[in-house]
């Protein structure tokens, strides 16, 4: 991301910043509600939206001139989900029957 002679990215940065702060407040608020089993889902969804915003706009994954960068990001997520997903399918199904 070189930023040569492009329009200023500052409005985007500040918008993302505000969104992240709102997301944090929302997480804290959602945690005080009784959503049953969905509490964790809501918390993780908000966290993932925040993480995506940071990666796309602050870490410049969006608009990265090098496609390999995007590949590395996707690969990292893929192996993380492989780790978590396969482990949890084991632990979550052990007590079946």
């Amino acid at each position: 991301m070189s930023g040569h002679s492009k329009s200023s990215p500052l409005p985007t940065y500040f918008a993302v910043f505000i969104a992240l702060l709102i997301g944090t407040a929302l997480t804290v608020y959602a945690a005080t509600l009784d959503l049953g089993r969905y509490n964790a889902a809501v918390a993780l969804t908000i966290a993932s939206i925040k993480a995506t915003l940071v990666a796309l706009f602050f870490m410049h994954v969006k608009g990265a001139s090098e496609k390999l960068t995007k590949l590395v990001v996707v690969a990292a997520l893929f192996f993380l989900f492989l780790l978590l997903g396969l482990t949890m399918t084991d632990y979550a199904t052990r007590l079946w029957n």
Binding site: T24, T27, V28, A31, T32, L33, D34, N39, A40, A43, L44, I46, A47, K50, A51, V54, A55, F58, M59
Partner: peptide, 25 residues
């Protein structure tokens, strides 16, 4: 900067997972 943002992202997940498991009264 990339490194710093990554550390921020880790915290974004740590906060709800460790602090907010079941907070409703």
């Amino acid at each position: 900067g990339l490194y710093w943002h990554f550390v921020d992202i880790v915290w974004i997940y740590l906060f709800p997972l460790l602090y907010l498991i079941d907070r409703h009264p």
